[in-house]
Simulated scan of single mutants.
Amino acid sequence: MKTRILTRSGLELTELGFGAAGIGNLLQSTTNRAAEAAVTLAWENGIRYFDSAPHYGAGLSERRLGSALHDLPADNRVLSTKVGRVLQPLSPGEPVDDFGYVSEAPFKRLYDYSYAGVMTSFEASLQRLGVASVDLLLMHDIGELTHGDEHAAVFKTALDGGYAAMAELRSQGRVKAIGLGVNEWQVCAATLAHTDFDCFLVANCFTLLNNSITQGFTAQCDQRNIDIIAAAPFNSGILATGSKGAGAYFYGRASAEILTRVQELEAICATFGVSLPAAAIQFPLRYDSVKSVVVGMTVTEQIQNNIDCYNEPIANEFWQELIDRRIIGPS
């Protein structure tokens, strides 16, 4: 599998990355054995970039990912996790707030973007992953989409405290690169004047349906040698299942307007003999600033489909048609 280099750190990421939310039981339950099989199959097919977070299954994803990677070579692997949530054991009888995760670990999530909170989260992640360091550390889910009216206060704490902790970990060599892991690229832009991040992982907003990020921000990143990792290229499912499937859009039900736009994409794909999921996965990789596309991978069939989509030939004429129709911009 082809690789791309994170400019500042020299980390080498495979163009297709393993998104580990699924092995944390996102939307459906899986087993430890199935999670290990998924990681192993991805490895056997050349994937070397793996991304997790404490949020995924309340620590379950990190624990399973660490266990699955334990006996695989670490010298050419890139591992990322996230900070911003601290996990605490549930009290007896305390209800689980599962955030869409099924049969997750018995912990509650507390947002904490302070210096101490980031350090606590980082150390706990190392324990669950079974490693002494991680390659890439991302601050998870700052932004208005997550925090609403509390965003301004959260943003200040994150930059004054959490960012300082992350920069310290980088200077100590305990992580090689730092950045954000968010669902809105605009909050990445807001940090540029205050931080020295190496990269941004953006989910659901570098897609065929949602790509305003390319209208100036990718150029800003290029100018500052800040790289982008594009996660969730299917926009939570609709670009994988198509307009006739049950796929969601941005964690919710797809609107009539979104379905119409998907149908237009499907018609263009049919004309050029391109599968919609393949176009969704390959679209972000048209940009030099994008170093990897992170896709959810839980079961054998899903992993193989993702790899097939990554490898599917797509003619330049297809992309030009999307540009001409102003579905995407020129790269």
Rank of each mutant, 00 (worst) to 15 (best):
Ala42Ile: 10
Glu184Phe: 08
Gly59Gln: 01
Gly24Lys: 06
Asp71His: 13
Ser67Asn: 13
Ala21Arg: 09
Glu123Pro: 00
Glu312Ser: 12
Gly24Ile: 04
Gly247Cys: 05
Ile307Lys: 10
Arg64Thr: 05
Ser212Ala: 13
Thr3Lys: 14
Gly100Glu: 11
Leu192Lys: 04
Met119Ile: 03
Ala42Asp: 13
Tyr115Trp: 12
Asn45Arg: 15
Val182Gly: 05
Arg85Thr: 04
Thr3Glu: 13
Val154Asp: 03
Arg33Cys: 05
Ser9Arg: 01
Phe318Lys: 06
Thr3Pro: 00
Leu41Cys: 11
Val86Met: 01
Arg48Asn: 08
Ala53Pro: 04
Gln215Arg: 14
Val290Asp: 10
Val187Glu: 05
Leu159Met: 08
Leu265Met: 11
His147Lys: 01
Lys2Phe: 13
Phe318Gln: 06
Glu312His: 10
Ser9His: 04
His151Phe: 08
Pro284Arg: 06
Phe283Gly: 07
Glu12Gln: 14
Ser133Gly: 03
Leu126Trp: 02
Leu322Trp: 09
Val131Glu: 10
Ala315Pro: 01
Phe200Tyr: 15
Thr260Ala: 13
Asn306Leu: 09
Gly179Asn: 00
Arg33Gly: 02
Ile327Met: 14
Ala21Ser: 15
Gly296Trp: 13
Ile307Glu: 13
Glu150Gln: 11
Glu123Ala: 08
Arg109Met: 10
Met166Tyr: 02
Val131Gly: 04
Phe206Trp: 07
Val294His: 01
Thr260Met: 03
Glu12Ser: 12
Asp198Gly: 03
Glu264Arg: 14
Thr207Asp: 10
Asn306His: 09
Tyr249Cys: 05
Ile303Phe: 15
Glu257Tyr: 07
Tyr310Leu: 15
Glu104Ser: 14
Ala203Thr: 07
Gly19Pro: 11
Gly10Val: 05
Asp198Tyr: 05
Glu168Arg: 08
Leu87Pro: 02
Gly46Glu: 15
Pro106Trp: 00
Val83Gly: 02
